[in-house]
């Protein structure tokens, strides 16, 4: 049992080690290159980092459970945009005119419900047709985006509610509202996946689907629940983001799925399903945001962020394979 222990340790801790490395690198490099006088590891800067991580982080946490389940969801970006539209638009619906600020929870509920429904639709199709989740969500990525456009054409949908903006920018116990959302989601999903029957069954399905079926686990409902959860989280992400920004562009959320998947893979979750960690995805999200800010801090343009993250993703994949390789014992096929 010795082989694998080291690599497991390295993999489990790798994302945190990477974050520490980033902090050191950008702090040191920042001393020489930074345009501003502020230190990189400035406290406010870090608080802001968590806040900015929240929208993509919430989606990435959801993507983790989908991928543990052995599926993938490419439609989260479109779901995000559609829920954002429902959130902002519903606040100006005449029927809610008399509610005053009570329209806020109603709009939130509507947006979250939309997310759950869109997720459920994905899940239902995957369950009932047996079509691969990659194809189903590739289709709904297009379809949901089409709905986004059909809602308001190519015009942005805007509605600013200052109470909402104040809430979204507020700080409780030092942390911003979005940060709290991210933390609560991370904790809740960690508990769900590690301590509940649903979570353990989801692991089993991703690990060995046949065995799960033979053991009487109903694969379809579990997958559908997970799709509903990621739909809910995409909506929550929209709620967190658009409460503050107040305007949805119909192209918003494009490439969201790719960022989320990148964070999940950086965290070490396997594409093939059955293994993965919510906390490591949290680490992956932080690592990406740190990289964005860090590159900005040392004066590299925003355009390099894509380049660096893409290459890091490939490097992580390569290292993961090197750690898992059985050396010369493996057949050369």
């Amino acid at each position: 049992m010795a082989p694998g222990t080291l690599s497991k340790f390295l993999k489990g801790g790798a994302i945190w080690g990477f974050i520490v490395l980033e902090l050191i690198f950008f702090s040191v490099a920042g001393e020489f290159l930074s345009l501003s006088d502020k230190a990189f590891m400035d406290f406010d800067n870090m608080l802001l980092l968590f806040k900015q991580s929240a929208p993509i982080g919430i989606v990435a946490i959801g993507m983790t459970i989908i991928m543990i389940n052995g599926n993938i969801d490419l439609s989260v970006g479109a779901t995000f945009a559609l829920c954002g539209i429902v959130l902002l638009d519903s606040m100006s619906w005449p029927i809610f005119a008399g509610l005053g600020n009570w329209v806020i929870p109603v709009a939130w509920a509507l947006a979250l419900l939309t997310g759950i429904l869109l997720g459920a639709l994905n899940g239902l199709i995957v369950w009932k047709t047996g079509v691969d989740a990659f194809i189903v969500t590739l289709g709904s990525m297009l379809g949901y985006r089409g709905l986004v456009f059909m809602y308001n054409g190519e015009q942005p949908t805007s509605h600013l509610n200052w109470t909402l903006v104040d809430f979204a920018e507020a700080q409780f116990f030092g942390l911003h509202t979005p940060t709290w959302f991210l933390i609560v989601v991370t904790a809740a999903l960690w508990y769900l996946m590690n301590r509940t029957v649903h979570g353990r069954n989801a692991f089993a399905i991703g690990d060995n689907r046949e065995a799960a079926i033979n053991a009487g686990i109903r694969v379809g409902p579990h997958m559908m629940i997970n799709f509903m959860i990621i739909g809910f989280l995409a909506a929550l992400s929209a709620v967190v983001f658009y409460s503050e920004s107040g305007s949805v562009n119909p192209n918003d959320g494009q490439l969201y799925e790719l960022w989320a998947i990148t964070a999940v893979v950086l965290g070490g979750t396997k594409l093939s399903g059955g293994s993965g960690s919510i906390l490591a995805t949290f680490g992956g999200v932080v690592a990406i945001q740190l990289l964005r800010k860090g590159l900005g801090h040392i004066g590299a343009g925003t355009e390099t962020v894509n380049l660096v993250i893409g290459l890091i993703l490939i490097a992580v994949l390569f290292l993961d394979r090197q750690l898992n390789i059985k050396g010369k014992e493996a057949l050369r096929v």
């Binding site: 380049l307 893409g310 394979r321």
Partner: peptide, 27 residues
């Protein structure tokens, strides 16, 4: 040759090439 997962590799390349293009054109 390195037998890496094509979904992740080309996902990474999607991002990397986009960055490359932006760097080349200055946005």
């Amino acid at each position: 040759y390195l037998k890496l997962n094509s979904l992740i590799v080309t996902l990474g390349m999607l991002s990397a090439i986009h960055g490359l293009t932006l760097t080349y054109s200055g946005g």
